[in-house]
């Protein structure tokens, strides 16, 4: 059964199709939620909230492609995660003077595996992590991030700068560890 047929079945009210769809996407979307919400339990709750909203509003969804479907699912999940972070007031405000334009070494990130990259991002503080996820991974602008998180653009920039600086430190530390292990 293709994804399009699955969506059609779900629209018709098939619970089995809903379950099948859930099995298909839940693992990836759980990891997506965990990039924003560190706790596994919270991430699972957000994922379930996202699926619940998806099934509720599926009548207004028109299937175009699998990529579009996954993008829509991602938007729903990210929105749920950001809602919870806003409720907890998790974002630390940083003065704009501290914000500096810094570029992380592209090769350093590209050479990392997905799991290693995930573990590094999860180690970031919540403010840095959220802005980095939204800017560097999802591709939003600072203006959009500021609107989504309820902070200023300068705060978004400073958070991103700090996140990148911290990631560079962590990557260098990891490289040094690897080098030591190899030398031993």
């Amino acid at each position: 059964m293709t994804t399009e047929q699955l969506i059609r079945e779900i629209k018709a009210g098939s619970v089995a199709a809903q379950q099948c769809f859930f099995r298909l996407y839940s693992a990836r979307l759980l990891i997506l939620c965990r990039r924003y919400v560190k706790s596994r339990e919270d991430a699972e709750e957000r994922m379930l909230d996202g699926f619940f909203k998806f099934f509720k509003t599926i009548d207004s969804f028109e299937f175009i492609s699998d990529a579009a479907l996954f993008a829509w699912l991602k938007q729903i999940m990210i929105h749920e995660c950001l809602c919870q972070l806003r409720k907890k007031n998790s974002f630390q405000m940083v003065s704009e003077s501290e914000a500096m334009d810094i570029t992380i070494e592209e090769d350093a990130l590209n050479n990392l595996s997905a799991a290693a990259l995930f573990s590094l991002i999860v180690q970031l503080p919540v403010g840095y992590r959220t802005v980095f996820n939204l800017y560097a991974v999802e591709g939003l602008t600072h203006k959009e991030i500021a609107g989504a998180l309820g902070i200023s653009e300068g705060s978004s920039k400073s958070q991103l700068w700090k996140a990148r600086a911290l990631l560079q430190k962590m990557i260098h530390a990891n490289e040094n560890d690897h080098a030591k292990q190899q030398s031993k």
Partner: peptide, 14 residues
């Protein structure tokens, strides 16, 4: 950074 996005989106288990 499409590379990061693709990497992380395809991650289904840790």
């Amino acid at each position: 950074q499409n590379i990061l996005q693709h990497k992380l989106d395809e991650l289904d288990h840790l």
